[in-house]
Design a binder for these strands. Structure first.
Lengths: 243, 243
DNA sequence: CGGCAATTTGACTATCCTCAACAGGGGTGG
DNA sequence: CCACCCCTGTTGAGGATAGTCAAATTGCCG
């Protein structure tokens, strides 16, 4: 099912990097990129492994090369809320001081390009084009986050799950997402989330999420080939459900 | 020493601006500031008046000089969620393209320094120090927004109101907020929100907000001298309630 | 003093949560 | 290779929290 892309033996060269032209690095020319590369290193993460912990001083930042990671916060008594999800070419971490307000944990196998925050800060301040890219990315992330607040504050469980599936379909475009050419209006997604994690994204319980899944399936809006897979059968209906 | 005769008497001069050293303008020297001033103008807004509408192309950006404004989105069927609140020296609007995902509406009498987005974009790209300030501000806003997601996704009504009041106490520090020297552990706030607006911030209904207010009052945690005023009597209890 | 809008209060309901039992399926060891 | 087990997810019953609808009250402003 999965196409196994050939990974170069060592990823020290940004020219070979698949996100070279999509991440903030796109702001840099070859020479600058070399300098950035000198202060960074790639790192692999397994599902469930954390890169950054909530509340710690911001010590590192990173670019996502491969995989999906969650940003999450917890209340003192253990309730969790996922406050963001990052995909390849997204930026992770809190540059320019302060503490990280949320943990960063891999949902899938992931590969990231990490930098010491201090090094990155210094580099960024010398390269306005990089800071500009970072600003654009941050503004976009803020937009997305605010849209999510409407979901958390005002939408019902069914609207939340429908919205979630639509966003997944959009975000996974060209990745785990497959279009079946026989049925062009359908789309099959492999979710990088467990049911519990979906609940933590949507501000619901796992049981409520599960019930909404089965309801959507019974209504013929989606199909559930396996635990992690969803086939969207009726996009229009799903969009209507999203509120 | 210097002849002041050439300085225009009108308020076109940023030197007189109260937020001069707090807003992103702080990144600029006198000459740059003059250039920025040339493309901006101040504008007064009355409560309820909108500066930006949800979904429109981003045509203007602004700095808040005075007052409080809300950022809000609505579902198609009219439910509202306030996704942000801005105070003096905060930045408003969506630079660098795209559409505004949320409306911007004054909660109090307000004064803002507005710029055409195109002019501002061009100016910003020529002044990396300004973009850096804007980046820091945007990162901070993203942190704050994500913290709010935990509240919307995982907290109960009483926890939400308690968290809200604590954030208000912090944000209104030195403004409408007064410390009574007889009772140093108390603090009186004049909220810039109606009950409905508080409900729209917290993702609750006006009735639920009202009930939580009266409960906190009955428990002796707060007092409600008038509709818009809150006196926090027991900070520790309120913090405990905030979860 | 009256009118009006905002807020509070009350009664009832719905949605979602909690607790609990059950099912399924993927991996492991016999 | 198959049986078993454990983890994840599903289903069910009952309860609690917050929402809805309606009425009463407050306080602000002319």
């Amino acid at each position: 099912m999965q196409s196994r892309s050939q990974v170069p033996p060592i990823m020290s060269n940004c020219d070979l990097c698949v996100i070279r032209n999509h991440a903030i690095c796109a702001a840099l020319d070859a020479k600058e990129l070399e300098a950035l590369n000198a202060i960074g290193r790639t790192r692999s993460i397994v599902p469930g492994e954390s890169l950054i912990w909530e509340g710690e001083d911001s010590v590192l930042v990173a670019n996502v090369i491969e995989g999906v990671l969650k940003l999450s916060t917890n209340t003192e008594d253990g309730r969790e809320q996922i406050v963001g999800v990052v995909y390849p070419s997204d930026f992770i971490g809190r540059p320019f001081g302060g503490t990280t307000g949320h943990g960063v944990t891999a949902l899938t196998e992931a590969k990231v390009c990490v930098f010491s925050r201090r090094d990155f800060d210094a580099f960024a301040r010398e390269h306005p084009a990089l800071e500009h890219k970072l600003l654009e990315r941050t503004l976009g992330e803020l937009d997305r986050t605010r849209r999510w607040m409407l979901l958390l504050g005002r939408k019902s469980a069914s609207e939340r799950l429908a919205s979630f599936l639509l966003e997944m379909a959009e975000r996974l475009e060209g990745q785990g997402c497959a279009v079946d050419f026989d049925k062009p209006n359908q789309r099959r997604l492999t979710l990088p989330f467990s049911r519990q994690q979906i609940a933590d994204v949507l501000g619901l319980t796992i049981e409520t999420v599960s019930r909404q899944f089965t309801r959507l399936k019974q209504d013929g809006v989606i199909d559930l080939p396996s635990r992690r897979d969803v086939t969207i059968l009726d996009f229009a209906a799903l969009t209507a459900e999203a509120g």
